[in-house]
Design a protein around this nucleic acid. Sequence first.
DNA 1: GAGCACTGC
Length: 814
Amino acid sequence: MSELAESNNHIVQSLDGEKKKKKRKRKKSKNANIPVVEDKLEDPEPLAQNKKTKFDNVNVKAEEEFVEPSVVTNTPLKEDTTAEAKLENQKVSPKPKNQKRPRSINKERKDTKNVSYFTDDEDEDVNQEIGPTDWKSLQNRADKLLEIRKTLPVYKSKDKHMEHLIKNKVTVLIGETGSGKSTQIPQFLIPHNKKAIAVTQPRRVAAINLATRVAEEYGSKIGDKVGYSVRFDNKSHKNTKLKYLTDGMLLRELMMKSDLSQYSTIIIDEAHERTILTDLLMGFLKELLLKRQEDKDFKIIIMSATLDAEKFSHFFNDCEILYVEGKMYPVERFYLDTKSEDIIDTTINTVIQINQGEEEGDVLVFLAGQEEIDKACSALQMFSPLLPKEAPIIVPLPLYAALPPAQQMKVFQPVKKNQRKIILATNIAETSLTVPGVRYVIDSGLRKVKVWRHQLGLSTLLTVPISQASATQRSGRAGRERNGKAFRLFTESDYHNLPKQTEPEIIRTDIAHSILMLKKLKVKDIVNWSWIEHPGQDSLFSALNQLYSLKALDDNGDITELGEQMAVLPVSPHLSTVLINAHKLNCLGPVIDIIACLNVENLILNPPSDKRDEINEKRRQICTLGNKYGDLLMFKELLDYFIAINSTGDKKKWCKEFYFNFRGFKNVLQIRDQLTQYMKSLFGADIENNDDDNDYFAPSDDEDLINESEMKSSKRSNNKPLGIESILKSFLQGFVMNSAIGYPDRSYRTVFSGQLISIHPSSLLFGKKCEGIMYTEFVYTTKGYARNVSMIDPEWLKEIAPHILGNREAINDN
DNA sequence: GAGCACTGC
């Protein structure tokens, strides 16, 4: 994301915050809570001070992280190890000896974790359109902005760059953070393009913010000459000259109109992030170059922030590379002299040292996951009152995606003058969110990553070291507003042993969906396609196999009619199989509901530990079907409840009571509508609106699974009973490979590999004995856990999967 | 009797 985009991001966000504040004021601020741990403080036993921080014994090296803005180079950022600096040996005081970390910390963490969920009002759709709308004031505003634009590095080299860009069909443009490349270059290009310009972004917010900013600069109303297009939100029309869109959106346009002839220039921004969709787009663009060879106006620009330019250039037939300098303040880097034994202790010590030894400025800490963040957060809260009075008061703030938006917003709100924000974040703060005011970065050097094991057909969640590029990016977060410092919680030699670049996503994820897209786009030879990064034979064959068993591909590996339909649907191939089968089995309505829920992350939140049993029990009570048939039916029941509640206020209250995510449910409704539309377009007029009285609730032929009282309970919002068996069978069509047979000792073994698995404790079926189960997700952490589990009748497998099920013994075995 | 990083259509 470019500097401007991000600063605009702040503007929008803080405006958003202002609106919220006002709204809250109007409501007489019913929520004056700040999650603090109070009780246990008389007997503090401050932790972390027992161990010496590795910085204590100094010998810490500092280096200049960033090249001076005036230096433009095509070699990797130089590491100037000559500039050695000593980190002042800050004494932490009071410093009791031999004190162990109190055992209560873990408990405390749980208790404070969700304290302020739902306390802030979650606004209804906030209209982000800001500023004037009449032509004259638009123009005035644009004129003012022009003065600022002229100070951007990229503006100064405008003519030189434009000459290259116009002359060449493909250009790789490297721009450091703050160069303004994402906002300026597309604008410069407008007069030189007969048709529209597309600029892709990996993230929705980035696309929206960039478009909003550029529209202002251009003196256009958003959605007119400058617009954007992201899922559920399109502010563009056929005369839009410059369109920012997510890379997923452009791929979708590619699938609908395969030569993208509506655009004369296509810009791929943030290419260095190497998301799976960006990589696919680059592959297609390379093919498009051949297809549109005669089209003199057609141009491609690849924009990237780091210096992996050669790879992109080489991929596009050694095209020219342009460099734009950035606007970045220097950041001093510090390393440990010995490895950290306990990353949380080291983190806390470092925070304290910064707090007592460094000038004002907030601290951003990068940790691997929620667990570490919550631990560190409550530890900091716990002895923050014990710190010397002269030092600023620390305000620890967690930041991760699973946190409700209201709580995430807290990192953007200013604190009092004598306070210092300590933001403890996951990777979300590396690219997705920019926190203003950060001057110090503490980097654990770790991140969590989901890795797909195609040999095993399952994913694992691992904590792994970051790359050098990632470390640079994290450190850079300290130098956005003025000089900063980055404290790396690893040694300098560790740093040099890190991989240079983060592994592209396509290497480590399940690519079945991508392969289906390629097939839909008529790619014959998948193995020799124009991959910028080849995912590897094994991964390809695993994906082809999956698609074959879902009947999306035929014996020749060609896409089937079913496959064509699946490719259009905006869900995984497994789930599109389910959708299409649900249509056949006449239970599409409830299946769409369930799939919409499955596609929203963090719909069901974890209650704090002291309320866990109580909340779980309450949830069980309202999910009678879920209790019996499993988590898929639970989603249907919950959504019915949510819809049936009349007022928004009551919906929110209900969500709060059960620890559900209100915004999540709203998102579910959007996805539900979209899926209904797609199914309508695929299968014609017989698909009715998903909203109310529809026909999908007709019972299937054999409903022996369901007794009368359940029939009654499932009628809640409809006149006809749910076809539970049909629903479950539809899902089984997509997830046959994820089925397991129950054994008398309550263990489960998968039908196809015989592997021992467990039902995740978050499932309603946890601890229950079922003859057979299926699940939509499997993650290996401490052991193999199935999530989103539903019961099945093992007999169904014979009916549904004879083509995969070689022998029946596997089933009859138990 | 556990605990999942981040995106996207």
